[in-house]
Simulated scan of single mutants.
Amino acid sequence: MKPSGPLFTLLAGLLLGIFMLSLNATTGTKVKSSYDGATATPTPTAPASTPATSTTPPAAPSPTPTPAPDSAYAGRTADDTAAVSVSVRDGKAIGYFCDGRSQESWLKGDVEDDGSMRLTGENGARLDGVLRAGKIDGTVEIRDRTWQFSAAKAVRPSGLYRSTAEVRGAKIDGGWIVLPDGRQVGILNRDGKPAAAPRIDPASGAVVVDGTRLTARPVVP
């Protein structure tokens, strides 16, 4: 009996498939899908930027002003015709200008933290100075005349002294500047009349006026 057409075609296709499988096994060829094992390549990420660091150093703190030290200062005018003394305490100052004969002036005022001072007295008297490095340099203006002066730090018994009292019915007011070299410059007023002052004992401040013993004491503001 002769095989039919469709059966023959089926057998031919089967044989062809077996042949192709044998060929693939022999050559080792493997058909791979284009999606098999595909891995996405990550997109590179830009590194995060680092904040810029300032190289400017921090500002230094302002120095704290130092108050003027408490002390007395004594010296001479530049022309050596008079003496000047200033006593400083707690930012206050009392100054004294004296020529040892007839001209004198008491002055007072404040001392700034930078050492500058402006002291004023009667009849428009004025002392402008700066305390620096243990001495006061400045000017004194009295009755339209100006003197330059320099006053060094005074060590006892040098410094500024004053005595007020009533002796035999007269009002006594004396001022003394004891200089570092031991010299004394002072004026004694009797009822407002100036004259050269007698010497005081620097150790005790004792002084005799018209037969009466008085005590000149250090001047502090």
Results as ranks from 00 to 15, higher is better:
residue 172 I to K: 00
residue 176 W to V: 09
residue 164 T to R: 09
residue 193 K to E: 13
residue 183 R to F: 15
residue 176 W to E: 08
residue 168 R to I: 00
residue 191 D to W: 06
residue 193 K to H: 14
residue 182 G to F: 09
residue 176 W to F: 08
residue 185 V to F: 14
residue 170 A to R: 02
residue 180 P to S: 14
residue 172 I to T: 00
residue 175 G to K: 00
residue 182 G to S: 09
residue 180 P to H: 12
residue 180 P to L: 13
residue 172 I to S: 00
residue 163 S to V: 13
residue 187 I to W: 10
residue 176 W to D: 10
residue 167 V to D: 02
residue 184 Q to Y: 11
residue 184 Q to V: 10
residue 173 D to N: 06
residue 179 L to Q: 15
residue 173 D to H: 02
residue 180 P to C: 13
residue 165 A to W: 07
residue 189 N to F: 14
residue 192 G to Y: 02
residue 167 V to W: 01
residue 183 R to G: 15
residue 182 G to M: 09
residue 179 L to H: 12
residue 193 K to F: 14
residue 187 I to E: 05
residue 182 G to Y: 06
residue 169 G to H: 03
residue 193 K to V: 15
residue 188 L to A: 11
residue 162 R to H: 05
residue 185 V to W: 12
residue 190 R to T: 05
residue 180 P to K: 06
residue 170 A to K: 01
residue 169 G to K: 01
residue 170 A to L: 05
residue 175 G to S: 02
residue 194 P to I: 09
residue 184 Q to A: 13
residue 192 G to D: 02
residue 170 A to H: 03
residue 161 Y to G: 01
residue 165 A to Q: 03
residue 163 S to P: 03
residue 176 W to S: 06
residue 167 V to P: 00
residue 167 V to N: 00
residue 171 K to E: 13
residue 171 K to Y: 10
residue 182 G to Q: 07
residue 185 V to G: 12
residue 189 N to G: 07
residue 165 A to G: 01
residue 166 E to T: 04
residue 167 V to L: 04
residue 168 R to Q: 05
residue 192 G to L: 07
residue 172 I to F: 04
residue 165 A to I: 05
residue 163 S to A: 09
residue 192 G to A: 08
residue 183 R to D: 15
residue 189 N to K: 15
residue 171 K to M: 11
residue 182 G to E: 06
residue 163 S to F: 11
residue 179 L to G: 11
residue 178 V to F: 02
residue 190 R to W: 06
residue 187 I to Q: 06
residue 189 N to M: 14
residue 189 N to T: 08
residue 178 V to W: 04
residue 181 D to F: 12
residue 176 W to K: 04
residue 175 G to I: 02
residue 184 Q to W: 11
residue 183 R to I: 15
residue 183 R to Q: 15
residue 174 G to L: 12
residue 183 R to C: 14
residue 169 G to P: 04
residue 162 R to Y: 05
residue 180 P to F: 07
residue 181 D to L: 12
residue 165 A to D: 08
residue 174 G to V: 12
residue 187 I to R: 04
residue 181 D to C: 12
residue 176 W to R: 06
residue 175 G to H: 00
residue 194 P to M: 10
residue 165 A to H: 06
residue 168 R to S: 06
residue 188 L to F: 12
residue 193 K to L: 14
residue 164 T to F: 11
residue 177 I to D: 07
residue 191 D to A: 09
residue 162 R to C: 03
residue 177 I to E: 07
residue 166 E to H: 03
residue 184 Q to I: 09
residue 177 I to Y: 07
residue 194 P to V: 10
residue 177 I to W: 06
residue 176 W to Y: 07
residue 160 L to E: 02
residue 191 D to L: 08
